[in-house]
Computed example of a mutant assay.
Amino acid sequence: TEEEMDDLLDLEPVPQTPVFDMGTDTRTEGDAATLTVTPVGLQERRGSNVSLTLDMCTPGCTEPYGYGAQLSPRDQSAQEYLRQGTHILTPAMLHTRAMDDQSLQAEFYETPMNFVDPKEYNYPGLVRKNRYKTILPNTHSRVILQSQDEEDFLTTYINANYLKGYDDEERAYIATQGPTVNTVGDFWRMVWQERCPIIVMITNLEEKNEKCAEYWPEDTVTHEGIEIAVVTVTQEDDYSLRVFTLKCGEEERSLRQYWYTSWPDQKTPDKAPPLLELVQEVERAREEAPPSSGPTIVHCSAGIGRTGCFIATSVLCKQLRTEGVVDILRTTCQLRLDRGGMIQTCEQYQFVHHVLSLYEKQLSHTAEE
C-alpha cells in the first residue's frame, strides 16, 4: 500500500536488524549470514517480536561496556565485512545492476547495519536527547559538543556522527537526527562549533507524526548565544533554500539550508533527477564556501535513511567523475562503520543505484556533445 511504501522510505525506526547486531539473539550457534539475509518485508518485521526485543534494550539496563569491550565473534565479523566489502561497477555493470532487484536485495541484506547497542550509552537523562531510542551515534565518530563542564556527559552529547567523504576525506559530512524540541540549542551549538556552511534537510516537519522540529526562525532568534537571522528564502521546484546570518560574539558567518521536501513519495527512478540536482547544487555551494568551513550537515528524521542516500550519492558522483567507476557497496560499508544503519532500506539502496545510473548517462551524454 501507499502507506507501507512511505514507511519503507522513512521507516518509523524500529530498525530492521539491530536486534541481530546487539547480541540479544538467543541462538547459540547462529551464523551471522543466516541471521541477516532474510529479506522480509518491513511490515512483517515490525509486528514481530523484534520490536519487543528492542524495547527491552533501553539504555540504563546494564553497565556500558565502553571501549575496552571484547567484540563478540559476530560483531567482529560484521566489522570485518564493513571494512572489506567492495563491488566495483563499470558504467555498463551499473546500468544492468540498477535493474537487478534480486542481486541488490541479496547484497543489501548481507551487509551488516552496525547499529549501536543501547548499552553503550548508559546515562540518565539521555532519552530526551534522542528522537528514536534505538538509533544512536556510534561512539568513535560521534560529534562531541564543547561545554563549560566537560564532566557532564549530557552537555557534550548530540546524536550526530562525522562521516568521511570521497577518497577518505575526513569529516566531510555530519549526519544527525532531525532536531527535537529538546535538542534545538545543541544543534545550533554544533553548527557554530563545527563551522558548518551548509545544512541539507531531507524530511517534512510531519509525515503522519513529527519528524523534525522547526529549528530555524521566521526572521531572528537566539539559541545558546548564537543569533540566527534569515536573509533570504528561495523556493525551487523540489527544495527551498534559506540563507542565514549567524552571529556569536564579534564573529559573523553565513549558512545555507537546503530543505528538500519532495522525498516522501520517493519510490521510483523518476524521482532520481531532483535528488541528483540537489546533490550537485550542494556540491557547488560547498566549493564556494570559505576555506575555513567545516562539514556539511545532513539530516532527515533518524539521520540514517534518506541522509545515508544523500551522502552516498554525493560521494559516489565524485568517484564516478574521478575514476569512471562506482563502488556503492564500499561507500555504504564506509558510512555504516561511522554511523550504523546508513541507507536504511533495500528500496533506498536500489534508489541510490538508479540515481548513479542516471548520473552516468548524463555524464557520458555531455562527453559525447
Rank of each mutant, 00 (worst) to 15 (best):
285 A>Y: 02
338 D>F: 05
288 E>K: 14
253 R>V: 15
308 G>N: 11
252 E>A: 11
243 V>H: 13
235 Q>N: 12
233 V>C: 06
244 F>T: 03
292 S>P: 02
286 R>A: 09
309 C>H: 02
245 T>S: 15
329 L>C: 11
276 L>A: 03
346 C>T: 02
330 R>Q: 13
224 E>Y: 08
343 I>S: 02
302 A>D: 05
239 Y>I: 01
261 T>E: 03
316 L>C: 10
306 R>E: 15
319 Q>K: 08
257 Q>M: 14
296 T>S: 10
240 S>C: 06
294 G>K: 03
297 I>W: 07
264 P>W: 11
251 E>G: 09
253 R>G: 15
283 E>D: 14
316 L>M: 09
296 T>I: 13
299 H>W: 07
314 S>I: 03
274 P>S: 05
230 V>N: 01
343 I>Y: 12
282 V>T: 12
329 L>D: 07
341 G>L: 08
320 L>D: 07
293 S>F: 04
342 M>R: 11
267 K>I: 05
234 T>M: 00
347 E>I: 01
346 C>K: 02
242 R>H: 11
327 D>A: 14
230 V>K: 02
342 M>Q: 13
337 L>D: 07
344 Q>T: 14
254 S>R: 13
337 L>I: 15
281 E>Q: 08
315 V>P: 05
271 K>E: 00
324 G>F: 12
279 V>T: 13
348 Q>W: 04
305 G>Y: 10
278 L>S: 01
341 G>E: 09
254 S>C: 05
322 T>L: 06
226 I>G: 05
341 G>W: 07
322 T>N: 08
304 I>Y: 12
288 E>D: 08
231 V>E: 14
241 L>T: 09
268 T>S: 09
297 I>Q: 01
306 R>Y: 04
245 T>K: 15
234 T>P: 00
322 T>W: 09
231 V>M: 10
